[in-house]
Design a protein around this nucleic acid. Structure first.
Lengths: 241, 241
DNA sequence: TCAAAAGTGTTCCTTCTACACCCATGT
DNA sequence: ACATGGGTGTAGAAGGAACACTTTTGA
C-alpha cells in the first residue's frame, strides 16, 4: 500500500468517483477490481491533501484514473453513515490474504488508519470514453468499464453511491447540458438520442427528441455522415464554441 | 470553550446549519453573534462524533439550537476549499480579546484543533418559527432570527453557505413539499402565497397560485377564519395526514 | 350599499405529444 | 424502383398565465 498513514491526507475523509462513459449504446461506469484474492470491487477513490480543495482532489483522482484532465465533474452527495467503515471488508480481505499481516509495524499503522470510519464525498464525472485510458493503481488487479445496470456487488456502500450519482445526473442532464460530455466531439442525433435512452432507461420519440435538443440552441450542424448504408445520411453535430 | 480538542469528534469536519423560519412575511435565518469583542456572526454549527451518522449529528445540532426535534432537514452541499480555515477569524478574535491566551496549555490545544482547515457539510432546516426557542451556547453572545436578505457579514464563507442553501430550497420546494414546514399547523392560502413570494422574491398571481397549490393534493380545507375584517373570510388549510 | 379581499371560471398562449408525410441513399 | 432510416410539419392535448366575474364580510 501507499503511505496512507503518513498524515499527508485529511483523516477519515475520502472521495469516491462515479465515472460515467458511454459505449455500445450502454452507459458504463469505471470500476476497479482490487488486487487480492476474492471478488472485491470498488469505485475509484482517494483522499484529500491538507492544502488541497476538495474539487481539486476529485480532479486529481480522476486524472490519475483516466489519464485526461478537463473532465466534467460535480459533487453530488456526502455519505456519512457511522457504520461506513472498511473494517468488514478489510477483515474479509485478510482472511483470504493472510500474507498481508507479515509486515508488522508498517501494516499495523495502515490498518489503523484505514479501518476507521470514513465520510466520503461523492463526485460524478462524465467523460468521452474514447479519450480515456483507464489506469490501475498497485491496489488494483484491473480497472474496467462495466454497464451501469450490470455492476457487481461492490464494497461498503459503493453500489448505493452509483445509484445516487445516476439520479443526480438525470436531474441535471438538461439544465447543465451534461449529456454531450459523454459523446465524442461530433455525433449524430441518433447517437444523442440513444445516449438519453440509456441514461433514462426509456425510449424517446425520434422527431420530438430532435426538436427538443435543437431548441436548446447549443449545437451546430456540420456536414453529413455517409456510412454506406442505403438510407438518408444523418447530419453530424458539435457543441457550439 | 468546550473540550473540542479531546478527540471526541472527527477532525477537520464540521456541519453548518442554515435554519430557515418565516415571520412577518419574511424568510429568516437563525444566526448567532459570537461572545467576543468585535462583530463576529456565524451560522449554528457543530461537529460529528466518531460513532454518529452525519444526519444524526445535524439533527442533534439543530435540536440543541432550536429546542425541537422532528425537524425537516436536508444535506445540500459540501464546502471544502483549502483556505476554509478559522485561522483568520481566530487571529482577529485574539487581537480583540487578548485574555483568551491566558490559559496556556489548554487553549493551545484548542487553538491547534480549531485553526486547522475544515471541510463543512451544509444542511438546511425548515422550521415553524413559533415552535422554536433559540438556544445560545456559551460561545454565543446572542442568537437571533435575521431576514435572509439583511444578513450581516459572517465568518469564513457562511454568507455563501446561506446563498447555496436558499438556492437548494428553491429547487426542492415543490417536489418535496417543503414550504409547509415553515408555516404553523393551519394557515390561509394567502399566507402560503406570501411565503412563496418571500422565498422566490417575486409575486405570484393569486388565482393561479391557489389552483397550483390545491392541485398538489396535499392540503385539506378546514373551517373559515374570521378575522373581523370587512371582507370574505378565507379558509384555513392543513397538510393531509 | 359599499369597499375589500376571497373564490371560481374562462380564454389565450405556449409547450409537449403523436401522427403523418416527404426526402436522401445504396442496392 | 424500392426498402431503410433521416428530416420536418401539423393537429390535438395538456399545462400555465392573464383576465373577468361572483361571493362573502363588516361597516
Amino acid at each position: 500500500m501507499h503511505n496512507l498513514s503518513e498524515q499527508n491526507f485529511i483523516q477519515q475523509l475520502s472521495i469516491d468517483c462515479v465515472i460515467f462513459g458511454y459505449r455500445d449504446k450502454k452507459l458504463q461506469v469505471l470500476v476497479n477490481k482490487l488486487n487480492f484474492n476474492g471478488d472485491f470491487w470498488a469505485l475509484p477513490g482517494g483522499f484529500v491533501y491538507h492544502d488541497e480543495d476538495i474539487d481539486k482532489a476529485a480532479n486529481r483522482i480522476l486524472q490519475e484514473r483516466t489519464g485526461i484532465s478537463e473532465i466534467y465533474l460535480d459533487q453530488f452527495y456526502v455519505f456519512g453513515n457511522a457504520k461506513r467503515k472498511n473494517l468488514n471488508f478489510i477483515d474479509a480481505l485478510i482472511a483470504l490474504n493472510p500474507q498481508m499481516l507479515l509486515n508488522g509495524e508498517k501494516n499495523k499503522e495502515e490498518y489503523d488508519w484505514f479501518t476507521k470510519r470514513f465520510i466520503s464525498i461523492g463526485y460524478y464525472a462524465l467523460v468521452d470514453i474514447n479519450k480515456v485510458v483507464p489506469q490501475k493503481t498497485d491496489l488494483d488487479e484491473s480497472i474496467q468499464w462495466i454497464d451501469v445496470r450490470e455492476l457487481p456487488q461492490m464494497i461498503i456502500d459503493h453500489n448505493a453511491i452509483v445509484s445516487k450519482a445516476l439520479e443526480s445526473v438525470r436531474l441535471n442532464l438538461d439544465e447543465k447540458r451534461l449529456a454531450f460530455n459523454l459523446l465524442s466531439e461530433t455525433f449524430t442525433m441518433k447517437e444523442a438520442q440513444e445516449l438519453y435512452e440509456s441514461i433514462f432507461d426509456k425510449p424517446f420519440a425520434r422527431n420530438n427528441f430532435q426538436k427538443k435538443i435543437l431548441d436548446l440552441n447549443v449545437l451546430e450542424r456540420l456536414e453529413k455522415k455517409f456510412t454506406g448504408a442505403a438510407n438518408k445520411a444523418p447530419f453530424l453535430y458539435r457543441i457550439k464554441k
